[in-house]
């Protein structure tokens, strides 16, 4: 049976050392480059005709655009529009990363905590900076509930601070855990199909039915987790912009 963890192994493709730091071009990096190239190709080629009545590809691109634009408008309001490029890029990167990772043999870079954490950390630092720039030190007042006795600040402020600092981690862990768990389940079920089907054909059909259902579910999760990651980014952005 195939080792379910093996698929997450990072394999260097081009070995690179810069000042003693390993910056090898890995299979994960290949998938990221492929993802970015595919997104860019999809979005530029599909809207090249700039038709007033969109064709099939152009409507697809417009669906993505409108989905994120509506999400930003509903969650952040009109001030959120200038953050559209960032949020849209984030959504497309996570979505394509999740979906391309489901192709057989492809590496899923969103199943790496490093990748999801860096994305979440960029969101977190960015949102915090926006909050401080727009509201100054007023931002800090939110770490203490309004109207609570002042003596409780010693406990409440650290708790709120830890709660705030845990945001990027829970954001990244959610995406990473969902993708990792899904791919492990798929590999294990796939192993069942092969090992049972090799003995008798009929029992192999049962895990295959499960595998098909779970594979379908994984597509749903890939879409949902990209949505959740982006929606939470929008909510945090709303928070930093409207603070009252």
């Amino acid at each position: 049976m195939a080792n379910p963890i093996e698929q997450f192994q990072i394999k260097p493709i081009v070995d690179l050392q810069v000042a003693g730091v390993n910056v090898s071009f890995t299979n994960s990096a290949v998938m990221m480059v492929v993802t970015v190239v595919l997104i860019t190709a999809f979005l530029t080629v599909s809207v090249r005709s700039r038709a007033l009545v969109p064709g099939r590809w152009q409507s697809m691109a417009e669906v993505f655009y409108e989905f994120i634009a509506n999400m930003l408008r509903d969650n952040v309001g009109s001030e959120g529009r200038k953050y559209f490029p960032f949020v849209f890029s984030l959504f497309m990167f996570v979505l394509f990363g999740n979906l391309l990772g489901l192709l057989p043999g492809a590496f899923t870079f969103t199943s790496q905590i490093v990748v999801t954490f860096v994305m979440a950390a960029v969101v977190f630092v960015g949102v915090t900076v926006i909050g401080f720039v727009r509201h100054g030190l007023h931002f800090l007042r939110f770490f203490f509930p309004h109207g609570a006795p002042l003596a409780t600040a010693v406990i409440l402020v650290p708790i709120e601070l830890i709660s705030y600092l845990s945001r990027p981690i829970s954001l990244s862990v959610r995406l990473f855990a969902n993708m990792t768990a899904g791919h492990i389940i798929l590999t294990i079920l796939g192993g069942f199909v092969v090992s049972l089907g090799a003995f008798y054909l009929v029992p192999g059909v049962i895990p295959f039915a499960f595998l098909s259902a779970v594979a379908l579910l994984e597509f749903g999760i890939a879409l949902l987790q990209a949505y959740v990651f982006t929606a939470l980014t929008c909510i945090y952005l709303h928070d930093a912009i409207h603070m009252h």
Binding site: G131, P145, G147, I159, E160, Y164, S166, D239
Partner: peptide, 27 residues
């Protein structure tokens, strides 16, 4: 303190109060 923050996080997530900085603002 982290345990307390964890309980508060879970409470806020369950009650849908997790969309602001600080629980006071959410409430």
């Amino acid at each position: 303190l982290g345990g307390a923050a964890g309980v508060m996080n879970a409470y806020r997530a369950a009650r849908g109060l997790d969309d602001t900085v600080g629980i006071g603002a959410a409430q």
